[in-house]
């Protein structure tokens, strides 16, 4: 189906949103794992951060799924997560979280360029960027030596 404002068709937009959906669901799964992989006293420090991030990431995924549905599509999910059974320090867990949060942020930044002209969609993507930006900033702050 043609989208009158955006450069992409509705089908292509749904496809791009599916990618963002996969990023978020995968990130949530990784948060769940990171939270259980942190050992020792570090748990006390980072457990809350990782738990909150997990819930927020699930919320982001739900927002995207809702957006995909509003385009008349059903969200597609294809993820392959492999998390090793190695204990992590709190710092290492936050470092890993920063890696995938930065990728999620870039994913939305790229998506924004693609949906230029479709104001509601642009606004939606902008709001996701703001949220991801906050996540990244928070993680960077926690990782300051």
């Amino acid at each position: 189906m043609e989208n009158s404002v955006s450069k992409l068709s509705t089908e292509e937009i749904a496809q791009e949103l599916n990618r963002a959906f996969a990023e978020e669901v995968e990130a949530a799964t990784r948060y769940l794992h990171l939270r259980s992989a942190v050992r020792g006293l570090d748990r006390v420090i980072v457990d809350r951060v990782l738990k909150d991030a997990f819930h927020e990431t699930i919320e982001h995924a739900e927002n995207i799924a809702q957006k995909i549905r509003s385009l008349g599509h059903v969200p597609k999910l294809d993820i392959r997560v492999n998390c090793p059974n190695e204990p992590l320090s709190g710092r290492e867990a936050l470092r890993q979280a920063l890696i995938f949060e930065e990728e999620a942020l870039e994913c939305y930044q790229d998506l924004l360029k693609k949906v230029e002209g479709d104001v509601p969609l642009e606004e939606f993507v902008r709001s996701q960027i703001a949220l991801e930006y906050e996540h990244v900033a928070q993680l960077k702050e926690l990782l300051v030596e």
Binding site: E23, F100, A104
Partner: peptide, 13 residues
């Protein structure tokens, strides 16, 4: 590779 960016970044580390 038809996988997420997060997955690629974590694997590349």
């Amino acid at each position: 590779l038809d996988i997420t960016r997060g997955s690629v970044s974590i694997s590349l580390k």
